[in-house]
Amino acid sequence: MFFGLGAYFAGIISVRGWGEPISGLLMAGIFAGVIGYVVSFLITRVQHLALIMVTLGLGFLTYELANAMPWLTGGTDGLRGIRTWPIFGQFKFDLWGYTGYAYALAVLFLCFLLSRRLVNSSFGLALRGIRENVKRMPAIGADHKGHLRLIYAISASIAGLAGALMAQTTNTVALDSLSFERSADVVVMLILGGTGRLYGAILGTIIFLVARDQLAGINPQYWYFGIGILLMVVVLFMPKGILGFLARIVDRRN
């Protein structure tokens, strides 16, 4: 959902005549973050299944909203006419995708550094405390809902950045960026790599996308059979995700 919001935001300001990529990216991130913070007041009220369903419900609402506002979003045809200006007025987004690739990689790198800082900060410690034991955190005087709201806003903003990146590098935004399938893909990648680990997310994404690309290249009709088997095998034999599995092997060696 926030991915799509960021994508639409970046896309729409570009259509309306502001195609400078870096400022557009930052604005999209901030926009998604602000929306994320507002939504987080709802989200932190619920847990477990209700939590999943409320987020899903909000996602569908946004999707239907975008569909119902074709004058702003282009409806099902997708947003057209996005023109992204060259980065620093120098590097054009070309057919070969070098610029887009380097740009996306640079943003990933910065986000990664930021996330690492965050995890190791006192705020990150507080979050880990919440993960280990939700009930104990308020007991030691920590405002756990405040922390959760903040991290929710931050992650929304990062998702928004990703969406904006997609909008800028492909010059297209359509309803599927808000869809359930898109969110499901991300969750799958995350669990595949191993949750709660920064590197896990990166590894999971790479494995999922490479596997999908290769399998779909071999047979576009049945590739999801292979993906399904991959997911089942990972869960059965590597319950902590691929990274968790690797970490355990390393531990054993030592």
Binding site: A184, V187, V188, I191, L192, T195, Q221, Y222, Y224, F225, I227, G228, I229, L230, L231, M232, V234, V235, L236, P239
Partner: peptide, 21 residues
């Protein structure tokens, strides 16, 4: 929970592919 979600999604994928086949 997450592993259950992942595994059963895998099953859905396989089921859809099998039905297609």
């Amino acid at each position: 929970e997450l592993n259950q979600v992942l595994f059963t999604i895998g099953v859905v994928f396989v089921a859809a592919a099998a039905a297609t086949f």
